[in-house]
Amino acid sequence: MSPSGASDAERDRDVTSTRWAQRVEEARRASDPGMLVAGIPYARFLGISAEVVDGELLGRMRYADRLVGNPVLPALHGGTVGALLEITGLMTVLWNVDGTGVPRIINLTIDYLRSAATEDVLAQGFVTKQGRRVVNVFVRAWQRDREKPVASANAHFLVGLPEIEGSGEE
């Protein structure tokens, strides 16, 4: 998916909004959301990936020692589970809504339901309401047992914006 020999850093520097839009199209054609997640540096940092299994988009965060927030229990850091919920929500929006821009998160409310054990976490998002500008997504995360979620979140994303180059949009 990346030109052979290109390092992650080179690949990241090379991303323009046009290239991102091309990647979105490619990923949709290949039915592989993982191609997009791999382009998000923080997702790589946390070991987050995405795949379509039986028609469902699932996010996954691979366990690594650096994700721990409480070494005594031990338990994963809430911030990492929050990031998985957010990225899975973002992918759910990209996968279900037309347009190729990066959806912009407005806000996110996370409920921490159980402490997350030191193993992989899975997540699935559901579009609750899709408006022209705003999409409301519910995301649930679990570990071994889907019926025992470790956390859930509601998030709003802004969509359908022209791509903004550089930071700061004021």
Binding site: S17, F45, E86, E163
Partner: peptide, 24 residues
């Protein structure tokens, strides 16, 4: 840090990093 970016197009830190910071 570059490896904490969330939007590959504009180099802005990932929301998830800010979440971890604010939670902590």
């Amino acid at each position: 840090r570059g490896d904490l970016v969330g939007d590959p197009v504009n180099g802005v830190l990932a929301g998830g990093v800010i979440t971890a910071l604010l939670d902590g």
